[in-house]
Design a protein around this nucleic acid. Sequence first.
DNA 1: TGCACTTGCTTAAACGATTAAGCTTGGCGC
DNA 2: GCGCCAAGCTTAATCGTTTAAGCAAGTGCA
Lengths: 347, 347
Amino acid sequence: MVSQRPGPNLSRIATSLGVSVATVSNALSGKGRVSDALIEKIRAHAAELGYVPSQAGRALRTGRSGVLGLVLPDIANPLFPKIAQAIESAASAAGYGVLIADSRGDITAQTEAINRLVERGVDGMVVVPRRATRISAASCPVAVIDTASTPGNTVAADHWQGGREIAAHLADLGHRRILIIGNNHESNVQNDRAGGIRSGLQPGMQSETLWIERLENEAGAGCRLGLAEKVRRGFTAFAALSDLQALRALTELQQEGISVPGDVSVTGFDDLIWSSVVTPSLTTVRMDMDTIAEIAVSALTDRISESGTREGVLVTAETERVPMQLIIRQSSGPANPAQKTSEMENR
Amino acid sequence: MVSQRPGPNLSRIATSLGVSVATVSNALSGKGRVSDALIEKIRAHAAELGYVPSQAGRALRTGRSGVLGLVLPDIANPLFPKIAQAIESAASAAGYGVLIADSRGDITAQTEAINRLVERGVDGMVVVPRRATRISAASCPVAVIDTASTPGNTVAADHWQGGREIAAHLADLGHRRILIIGNNHESNVQNDRAGGIRSGLQPGMQSETLWIERLENEAGAGCRLGLAEKVRRGFTAFAALSDLQALRALTELQQEGISVPGDVSVTGFDDLIWSSVVTPSLTTVRMDMDTIAEIAVSALTDRISESGTREGVLVTAETERVPMQLIIRQSSGPANPAQKTSEMENR
DNA sequence: TGCACTTGCTTAAACGATTAAGCTTGGCGC
DNA sequence: GCGCCAAGCTTAATCGTTTAAGCAAGTGCA
């Protein structure tokens, strides 16, 4: 009734060579005691037959599925492609598959998604939470990728340092009044980035912070940010906490006839797909997602192979912060002399 | 040695209730002959113990893993979040998990990724190819999501009709000279979209097509598209074949001091994340990814449950084209009267 | 009463891999 | 020559589920 797996299995190889399945298994895994000659013979025959081990059989016996789960509460996040790519790459290098779970931004659906992954028998999970979400209901090792200030965080980009890079860059260019543009003031990532920027300001520099979500609560979604007014008030640099907000700022400024980087500078975060494509191309800060993913995955696989010490589900890694890299493009330039003078007068 | 699955299994429930495992299995699946009273009792006890069936055991017995693979040769594609979300949603509604595979744009790595999925024992795969790629090496049902003109395509958005929607919209606004902006002229999707636009032009309208990849081969990556020159030559509308190109066009025009939609109109495709956020927000065409995913997944699951008729691996669906929806925002407006007059003179 | 048939359960055999334990054989030391 | 040990293989149990087959008891009918 059920279509049998067509490929050859251990027992077919065994009978075909006149040996036992155990010997074949040992030869292929290199574990037991099998003579070199026989190992060679078995491996050759297995390759010839195109043998692929059944994950189901292996999983049933070993209790390991060889699959990791990837949970992103906000899968519509434009960062998702990079994260998924990096995790998948790191996982498959470690011999694991990646099962995705989505909760469409819904917090309650997140635990449901996690449960689905557990039911599917994942050996571990990588979770990228949006807000501070408690990850507790999972009965397998969990690696959290958020930001260093999040309790229980496993590994993440050094968002704080990224912010300092931005601040140093803008300071070098002579900017004095900086508007930080964020989306949500409850986001740990955005707070760390903003904090990094503020901590990197030189004496004589000042910043204000604009949270778009707050603004939209009053003025409606998709409203103008009122950046032209900010320019009139002497802001010469707009440091967005994500490239999406940087794009929003850039196009609004352009629409108002304000030149970037001639009149003001705009910077972003994350080096998203469009950063290099827009005019002017966006100065931004890139996170080393490949390294982060590698650390997260190896922390998981380490824990999985130990499997004796069950000291809580959250795993930890040696390196908790991975440096971010400043990418200087066209959207940032020297502060406009006119603004600079008015700034000089202010002192 | 191996950490046993902690949860209860069939036999634990069975011994605990003093019945056989087969009865428990039958009661939970509702398949065999079990009295209603016992079914009730078994289900209650299973729920109480928090029983979750072992996918490994089930997979081994049935030969089905309950997992679908998702292959995207170009996972960095900004469409990926929507696709992954839609597929995951449709799959989990059908009781399947989704395993992702990436090939980082590499064609040879694609077959490797497909093989990894097959080795993991997926019951079927959804493949979204970038160019015309032959999907043959898979030993399981495959659904292809590309475009109607691709041979072997299972289901896709009606890109041609989407192009006609754009053309009709621009015609209504009085535009007569339209520049179609695409990335790659070998992409089936982009060709269908461009063809749709051209076929929807009214008498008296004309179009040219600009392929960015060709331009960049000569002028270098990230070069200007020279749209200001096109405006001078009388183009009043720029119809990009993807929102990414639309964004590139929009920002370049703004940088040149050309007003959108005051002087010229810009439209895109796909309704990507930034379309509603930029100023002016992008008029675009959205594909109904949820419906497409649902059709693709149910085509797969149908084939999987038949499992007798092995008439090739590529599955087909009744509905092959899913309509696209025009989203009118701020980036498209009436053709500039000045341009219109010069156009009138041309007649 | 005897036969067929249904109901409700159990027994047991798979699926494919891993692995502990057992069994020969041969070599080596004393 | 005897015992011991290692090498090289086999035997057999096991993971958890599904499902065909079997079996006892009850029901309906002639």
